[in-house]
Structures are given as C-alpha cells and as structure tokens.
Design a binder for these strands. Structure first.
Length: 585
DNA sequence: GCCGTTTTCGGCCCGACTGTTTTCAGTCG
C-alpha cells in the first residue's frame, strides 16, 4: 500500500468515526486525521518504516495505530478498521474527495438516496441534483443543490486536485497577485504567508495577508482581480478566489496594529499553531489572528516578534514552524542560527555550454557569462560541473582529451578574471554497478566531482545504497548530487539507508548536495534535518544550465533552513582556501 | 488515540464563512 492509500484509509476511518458518534470518538477522529496528514507528507514509504520496525517514529502514530498498521502489512486487512468502517456506506468515501463534501453532508446524501455504488455515486448524485431532488431534502436548498453540481463539475476538471506547485513557481504566482494588491490605496502591507512563507517544497493554495484600515475596500478590490475565474467566498475580513489552473488564493486582513498576530496565525503550520495555542492555554492566554486574550481582554501585536515575546518565546523562523521541536527550543531561547543566503560563497554544480559532448543535457550559457553572474552574486568561487562526456559515444582516451581541453580553456579564462576562482569539477554518472562513468586518468584532471544517479532508479534500498557508496568511494568523488533522485510531482526518490550514507560521508569527508533545481529541491528537508543531527556536511548547489538559474540558490538555502541547517553545516559557506582544502581532504 | 521540563493520567486551538437553520451545522484553514 502506498502512503497516499494509507492516508486515504485513515481519513476514511476518521469520517466513519464522525458518522458513528462524533462526540464519543472526538479524539480518535483527531488522531486518525493527524496520522493521515503525517503519512501523506512522509518522503519514505510507510512500508519501509514497517520493515525497519520504525513505525512509532512517525508523528501521530502511537501504540494503537502502530499495531493496526502491522496487522495491515501482515494480513492486508485490519479487524478494528473493519469494525469502524462497518455501517458507513462505501460510496460516502468517494464523495469525500470532492471539495465542500464532508462526512455529514456525504452521509445525508448517500443515506437518503440509498447510493451504494462507489463507482457511480458521483454520476448518480449529479442526476439527482439535475432533477431537483436534492433541494427537496431537509437542510438542503436550491443554492446547495447548484453548489453540489458545480463542485462535481470542478472535481471532474481536476480543480483542487491539480498537482501542487513547485515552490519557485508558486512564488511567481503569488508575486503577480501581490503586485496587483499593491495597486490599492487601502493596502498598507501585503505578504505571502502559509506554506509559501514556510518555503515548503510544493505549495497548494496561496495565502496572502494584508494590513489595512479599510478591509471592505480591500476585499472588493481583491475579488475584482483580473486573474480571478471565480469567487469562492467573501466575508468581512477574508475572501477566496479561484484563479486559472484551479489555484485557490486566500486573503486575510487585519488592521496594522494586529498585523503581527495575523502573520503568525496565517503562516502556520497548523500543527505549530495548535501547539502554540495549547502552550498559551497553560498560561491562561488564548491566541488568534486578532492577538492574545488574557482574562477576556485582547492585546494586539503589530509585529510577530512581539507576539512570540508575549509568550516568552524566541521569534521562530517560518521555515521551522512545523511543530517538530522548534517551540520547545524557543522556550529555552536555544533556536539554532540558520544559514542565510549571504553565507553562500560559491556554487559547485553548474553546467556551462562548453562542448563536452555529454551523456546528458549541456548548459546554454558560456563559462564567461556564468563567472560574471558568480561575481554579481558576490561569490568567491564557482565549480564547473558539466555532465561527463558520453561513454557510449567516446573511448576513454577521447574523454581524456575532451576534459584536458576543457581544463586548458578554464585556465585560459582564469588569466583574465581575477576576482572569482574556479574549481574544475564534473558531474559524473554513478553507473548501476556503482562504478564511475570515467576512468582514473580522466578523473586526475579534476579538482573533484559531483557524482549522481541518472539511470536505473528502481533499485531496492540496499542495492541503491551500495551503488552510491561505491560511487562515492573514489577519492575525487566529493559531492553526492541530488541524493534521492526525486522529481517533484513526477517521481518520488529512491529509498536509501541514510545511516550508512551518513556514516560513510563523515568518515571519508564527503558531502551531500542540497540541489536547488525547482523540480528537485533534493535533499528533502527531513533528511537534511537528520544529516544535521548526524553532523554530516552538505553543499547547496543550483545545478544551473543557464546563468539566470544561478539565482535559484535561495530556494536551496530555504530547503536547508527547513532542515535546520546552520552555516557550519554547509561547506560552500567556507572561503576559497578552506573549501579547496576540503576538496583535497 | 496521542503525548509528556507542571502530567504515564488527563488533557486535547480558534475562528471565518455559507446556507439554511430563526440560533446553528458543516466545512475549511
């Protein structure tokens, strides 16, 4: 069973409990929903957690759910789940996939109309709505009937189900709306919040916060946004619209004196906020987007710093707000100082257009252009790491000649450029048996290499780990490129034995790459966090194939921050001499 | 069902908006 399937099963369990007795099972419902969310966000298959006997390390999975999962993997079914699900018509679960359908509404409909077939339930419901049958039901009316028809239509067209946006793309979409909002005289400040502010690798909805003294005017202006395809809802301080591609934009407004509370509230994450509010309750405080209530009296906060301070907490960087221990550290004022973009001294994974006759794609910008960009980014150094010359088209001798020529070209450039230093690197394929694609004689021409997997991704955990460790064992192999091979929205990464990889990297002075390429953003933040804890060094690279892409470094830095990486965890924060020394280590 | 630097028992966030209810239920974030 995939993680998505298990998450859906758990959501069904929660829904079935709601139908059974929402009050009685209140906390089971929360528990299963929480576990479902956690599992949906894992980058490792739950089946692998099971195999490694690590199920209880999944947040929200305790003794009970653990034993149910074990039963699920052993027998393919769970007695307790069958008991919970019994009595809830299967067709209900299909309806839950449609936005605006919750358990109660779905239950009323499938029960009243006796809808039994989960495969046809949506079509059946549509027919009933078209005949006007739904409006006749108690607690339904004409409006809810037409809303149901539209919800079904949008669901069929994939609205709300469209793949999540990769972070840099979401930032672009948000920028457009932010610029539009800045055109209103009533908007004092506007900020993208939610998962975008937390810099999550993929973004669903876009959340925007506005500071304004005239919320009504701002809302009227917002819903007239030229990108808007449909108004979803519109109130006194919030509104939501649907823009092209089925993307939802949520707007929330507070006056400037409460903007700090709004920033905090709307940035989330949900888990972070829930934990924060529970903590506040113990201090007899109640938190909301309006501020902090004490003895029924509301105190407003214009900045987030003041808001957190009022709770005796250090201000927590948005990237850390996932309720994975950051609140506890903020209480002790012991949050790590996270790496920042200005700490970066160089980019070690760039593909120029040098005609290296590579195995994979060549860059489109010249070495000179890339050096110029490196300088404008205030870098001390850059590493050229084009793909190795194709091994199917060239002999080893020919590869050596190509690389020799490239070295000469680099040395020639360096004579005219004084302020940026260059490392002669190469991105080398780790072949399926674990051998590097080029031989020692050619490797000798390099200062070091980024080694990566570019073929045969479907190996099991042990084999893939062996393959990578073999590839990394060459003295010149210093950086493991895009370590999990994940392509966001396309394929999940291969599973690796991280503890073995970490141990090897520490022992032999190897670094894991944090790849800033928008569709990769690889390493995943949870693995970065584990690497930081294991004191394994990393390098943040862009994998640029053209100059403009070198500016994507900030997304790699965001990813590192989400993994709680400090400057000292990232090797390309070192100056040229120190980095050079490490390459030779 | 989960979880823990006030607790292994006894807690478990807070609010906006809509449609259909004439005071609230359901969904969402």
């Amino acid at each position: 069973m995939t993680n998505a399937q298990i998450a859906k099963l758990f959501r069904n369990i929660a829904a079935a409990y709601i139908i059974k007795d929402e009050k009685k099972f209140r906390f089971q419902i929360i528990a299963y929903q929480k576990a479902a969310d956690a599992i949906a966000h894992l980058n490792t298959e739950v089946a692998d957690y099971y195999k490694n006997n690590e199920l209880d390390t999944i947040p929200g999975v305790g003794a009970s759910i653990k034993s149910h999962l074990e039963e699920l993997f052993k027998k393919g079914k769970v007695k307790h789940f069958e008991w919970v699900l019994k009595g809830t018509p299967e067709a209900l679960f299909t309806l839950l996939d449609i936005p605006t359908f919750g358990p109660k509404k779905a239950y009323k409909l499938v029960r009243h109309f006796d809808l039994k077939n989960p495969k046809t339930v949506i079509d059946d419901l549509e027919k009933l709505a078209k005949k006007g049958k739904i409006a006749e039901l108690p607690s339904f009316g004409e409006k809810s009937q037409s809303d149901i028809l539209r919800a079904i239509d949008e669901y069929r067209h994939g609205v709300g189900k469209t793949t999540r946006m990769v972070l840099p793309y979401a930032a672009e979409v948000a920028d457009k709306i932010v610029n539009y909002l800045k055109g209103s005289k009533d908007v004092i400040r506007v900020e993208p919040l939610g998962s975008l502010r937390r810099q999550v690798a993929t973004i669903g909805d876009i959340d925007l916060a506005v500071a304004s003294k005239n919320p009504k005017e701002v809302i009227d202006y917002f819903v007239k946004c030229p990108f808007s395809e449909r108004l979803i809802e519109k109130g006194t301080i919030t509104a939501s619209i649907l823009v092209s591609g089925g993307r939802q934009i949520d707007l929330m407004i507070q006056p400037p004196e409460s903007f700090g509370s709004l920033l905090q509230h709307f940035t989330g994450s949900k888990d972070h906020n829930v934990h924060l509010r529970e903590l506040a309750l113990k201090k007899h405080l109640s938190l909301s987007e309006y501020g902090i209530k004490k003895n029924g009296k509301l105190q407003k906060y214009d900045t987030e710093e003041k808001f957190y301070k009022a709770l005796d907490l250090q201000w927590i960087p948005p990237e850390m707000r996932e309720d994975t221990g950051e609140i506890e550290l903020a209480e002790k004022h012991r949050l790590p100082k996270l790496i920042e973009i200005n700490d970066i001294k160089g980019d070690l994974h760039t593909h120029s257009n040098y005609p290296i006759e590579p195995s994979h794609d060549l860059g489109v910008s010249s070495m000179e252009e890339m050096l110029k960009m490196a300088k404008s980014l205030n870098y001390e150094y850059i590493g050229f790491s084009e793909h190795n010359p194709s091994i199917s088209k060239h002999t080893n001798q020919r590869i050596y000649e190509i690389l020799k020529k490239r070295s000469e070209k680099i040395e020639h450039i360096l004579e005219s450029i004084k302020n940026v230093r260059v490392f002669k690197l190469l991105e080398i394929d780790i072949l399926p048996p674990g051998k590097l694609a080029i031989d020692d004689k050619s490797l000798d021409l390099l200062d070091g290499a980024v080694v990566s997997i570019h073929s045969v991704f479907s190996m099991n955990r042990n084999k893939m780990t062996e393959r990578i460790l073999n590839g990394l064992s060459h003295k010149k192999a210093k950086i493991l490129g895009h370590p999990t091979g994940r392509m966001l929205n396309l394929r999940s990464g291969y599973d690796l034995d991280w503890n073995r990889i970490f141990e090897f990297c520490k022992k032999y002075h190897k670094a894991l790459e944090i790849n800033s390429w928008p569709n990769r953003l690889d390493l995943p933040d949870q693995i970065i966090r584990r690497a930081v804890e294991a004191d394994v060094k990393m390098v943040i690279n862009t994998d640029s194939h053209r100059v403009a892409q070198m500016e994507l470094m900030r997304y790699g830095v965001s990813l590192a921050r989400r993994g709680w990486a400090k400057k000292s965890d990232i090797l390309n924060t070192l100056g040229y001499n120190d980095f050079s020394k490490w390459l030779k280590s």
